[in-house]
């Protein structure tokens, strides 16, 4: 059966420590000044009724990726297991895909001058059955990764138990990254 990858980000467990941010940079040689992954932490509300929110900002690996349908050269393509990759040699850096991404997950690598984004660490880890770097270092185990089509996988069990929100779901992109929303704090 085809793989159905899912990455669950539990906002309740995330503490915004950026260990994932740094691990991603090291694993993927991300150049300075640009990021494949950041966790944004915002305080909402008015003192003393406040809430703190943690938002993972990175490619959500859509099942229906707009970045693939807009690419004129096929440099941005989707593999059989649903992952979206970039053929560096075929990328003409027209930036159409960067604009097409509703999650603003793509950027230009200033050293190679091609478009880049999170790949779930496919080349160095996922293709060797290892979890992406961010998942492996998360201080509080806020990130869970796996194949949701496998009944007994962590992500499948968590998906059955928890309320999952898919970012910008109304756009029909069907992201593989979803989150368990924070239960505490003021939400504005």
């Amino acid at each position: 059966m085809a793989k159905a990858y899912r990455l669950i980000f539990d906002e309740n467990l995330c503490i915004g420590c950026q260990a994932c941010n740094v691990a991603c940079r090291l694993e993927n040689d991300v150049p300075e000044e640009v990021y494949r992954l950041q966790v944004h932490v915002t305080t909402q509300g008015v003192f003393p009724h406040l809430g703190m929110h943690f938002e993972r900002r990175s490619c959500v690996m859509c099942d229906e990726p707009p970045c693939v349908s807009v690419c004129p050269t096929g440099a941005s393509f989707q593999s059989k297991d649903g992952l979206v990759h970039i053929h560096e040699s075929q990328c003409i850096t027209c930036k159409y895909c960067i604009l097409a991404c509703p999650y603003h997950a793509r950027f230009i690598n200033p050293l190679k001058n091609v478009v880049e984004k999170c790949t779930f660490c496919f080349d160095s880890r996922l293709s060797k059955a290892l979890d992406p770097a961010c998942v492996s270092v998360c201080t509080t185990e806020a990130l869970r990764f796996g194949d949701v089509s496998q009944e007994n996988s962590t992500v499948a069990m968590l998906s059955r138990k928890e309320t999952l929100l898919f970012p910008k779901a109304h756009l029909g992109t069907k992201p593989k990254v979803c989150f368990i929303p924070a239960r505490k704090g003021v939400k504005v």
């Binding site: 539990d10 309740n12 467990l13 503490i15 915004g16 420590c17 201080t139 509080t140 185990e141 806020a142 239960r183 505490k184």
Partner: peptide, 20 residues
């Protein structure tokens, strides 16, 4: 514990705080 990290304690507190 979520900023002054002490990993074993931070992990335990994270699990506690996330438990409804």
């Amino acid at each position: 514990l979520f900023e002054g990290l002490d990993i074993p304690l931070s992990k335990a507190m994270a699990r506690f705080a996330a438990n409804p």
